[in-house]
C-alpha cells in the first residue's frame, strides 16, 4: 500500500557506489595494476594514515596482523574483491572516489603482496582479483545463517 510515487531509475543513473563488487568479481571494471605500480601510489596517498609500508598504522594497518590491528584487510578479509570496492569508494579518506580503476587495482595488489598473499608480478584485474585465495577465508562462522537475529 502506498502512493506509488517512485520514479523509474535507469541503469545509467546508478552510481558505482550504489552497488558493490561481489566475491565472484561481478561488478569489477576493466583495468589492471601490480604491487609495483601500487607502491609509489601507496606512499603518496595512503602511508600518512596507514603507515610507511602498511603495517605501521596508526589507522587499522592493512598489512599484518600486529598489535595495532588484528584484522588487516589484506590477510584477514575473506574476499580480495572487497579491497577493490572499498578502496575505490572510500579511500583516501579526504578524497574518496578520486582513484582511477587502474590505481585501485594497483593499491589492492600492493596490499595483498605486502601480506604475502600474491606475488609481486601478478597484475590484479577483473579476472585475477576474484581468484585470489585469502588466507583467512573459511575461518568465519556465519552467525546470521546459524541463528538469525538471536544475539551471539
Amino acid at each position: 500500500e502506498g502512493p506509488g510515487l517512485g520514479q523509474p531509475l535507469e541503469t545509467a543513473e546508478i552510481p558505482f557506489y550504489a552497488t558493490y563488487v561481489k566475491p565472484d568479481g561481478t561488478g569489477l571494471p576493466e583495468g589492471s595494476g601490480t604491487a609495483a605500480d601500487g607502491e609509489a601510489l601507496y606512499a603518496a596517498k595512503c602511508a600518512s594514515c596507514h603507515g610507511a609500508t602498511g603495517s605501521e598504522g596508526p589507522v587499522m594497518p592493512p598489512v599484518g596482523p600486529n598489535d595495532i590491528w588484528a584484522k588487516p584487510a589484506g590477510s584477514y578479509w575473506p574476499y580480495a574483491t572487497t579491497l577493490f570496492d572499498y578502496i575505490r569508494r572510500a579511500m583516501p579518506l579526504e578524497a574518496p572516489k578520486s582513484l582511477s580503476d587502474d590505481e585501485t587495482y594497483a593499491l589492492a595488489a600492493y596490499i595483498l603482496e605486502r601480506n604475502g598473499v600474491i606475488d609481486a608480478e601478478t597484475a590484479m584485474t577483473a579476472e585475477t582479483l576474484p581468484q585470489v585465495k585469502m588466507p583467512n577465508h573459511g575461518n568465519f562462522l556465519d552467525v546470521w545463517a546459524r541463528q538469525g537475529a538471536k544475539p551471539w
Binding site: M60, K71, P72, A73, P78, T82, Y86
Partner: peptide, 9 residues
C-alpha cells in the same frame, strides 16, 4: 556482498 565492514571491522 561482503562489504568492508562485514569483512573485518
Amino acid at each position: 556482498v561482503h562489504t568492508k565492514d562485514e569483512s573485518g571491522e
